[in-house]
């Protein structure tokens, strides 16, 4: 029987119930990103006022970097936290003994990631426009492939985080938040790859998000859309996607073989 959208829909429905029943959950989606935005926004204003001529207006890339980073982060969180919700509520066994394929479960968590990104993005772009006159939509049509690549990479990092938590149990649950930050210093979110030590640059360039942040800065500086960088990001995402899927599947096989899946689910 093929992949079932109904099954994915049922799994997502659970999160819709959860978020609509507990509005306080939206704090997590809105509060922290807003704090980040305010900090980076005011820093941007401060930097623009420095020196006789101030810094160029392209300094607003700090706000753009922060918002796009949050897209990646929320997407990753959608996958990892959805899995943890099942662990925390001791519901994981119920899901794994239900007729749910692994790919349907992962797809549902990815879709939750999209919903989380949607909520956060709407709030952040609105506040950035009102408070700092930063309009993310000024990036133009290229914004869509930028967002798509970041969300894809977020999903893949989420799958890696989930696989690690399955393997190491709840003791490793902080990885759900930590994994994206392992790569942040190399992802060129707020500065170009060129400022990194030469030996770190190949690692930075192997991350699908790096060309996106580089591309965003280029577009904000008035340069043409770097389509070749987008193509490169997408290619990297294909490689990362394949690796993440393999890593997730291998770990799921391992935890089924060793009984760790049941241990994680009943801890």
């Amino acid at each position: 029987m093929p992949f079932s959208c109904n099954t994915v829909g049922a799994l997502v429905l659970r999160y819709v119930f959860l978020y609509t029943r507990h509005p306080v959950r939206f704090v997590e989606l809105i509060f922290w990103p807003l704090v980040d935005l305010l900090v980076w926004g005011f820093l941007t204003i401060y930097l623009q006022k420095q020196g006789p001529a101030g810094l160029p207006s392209t300094i607003t890339f700090l706000i753009g970097g922060m918002i796009l980073w949050d897209v990646l982060f929320r997407s990753q969180q959608g996958v990892a936290i959805s899995f943890l919700e099942d662990v925390w509520t001791r519901n994981l066994l119920n899901v794994f003994v239900a007729p749910v394929r692994t790919i349907e479960y992962v797809a549902a968590t990815c879709l939750v990631g999209v919903l989380r990104v949607g909520v956060t993005l709407i709030v952040l772009t609105g506040v950035a426009a009102l408070a700092y006159h930063f309009h993310l939509a000024d990036l133009g049509i290229v914004l869509l492939p930028f967002l798509a690549n970041l969300m894809l990479f977020g999903w893949f990092l989420g799958m890696v985080s989930t696989a690690l938590i399955m393997r190491w149990g709840q003791a490793a649950e902080s990885l759900a938040w930590a994994v994206p930050f392992f790569i942040q210093p190399l992802a060129a979110v707020f500065y170009p790859v060129s400022v990194l030590p030469v030996w770190l640059q190949p690692i930075a360039n192997s991350l699908p998000c790096t060309p996106i942040f580089e591309g965003m800065r280029a577009v904000l500086a008035g340069h043409p859309v770097p389509w070749h960088q987008l193509g490169y990001a997408f290619t990297l995402n294909l490689v990362w996607g394949a690796l993440a899927a393999w890593f997730f599947a291998a770990n799921l096989r391992y935890v089924r073989k060793t009984g760790l899946l049941v241990k994680v689910a009943t801890q």
């Binding site: 099954t7 429905l13 959860l18 029943r21 507990h22 001791r90």
Partner: peptide, 23 residues
């Protein structure tokens, strides 16, 4: 006795989710 349905949802919500999972 050692598993539970998601504690943060209402009973009808949990049953609805699983009814859909089992089609």
């Amino acid at each position: 006795a050692y598993t539970s349905l998601p504690s943060n949802l209402l009973v009808w919500q949990n049953l609805t989710v699983f009814a859909r999972l089992y089609r």
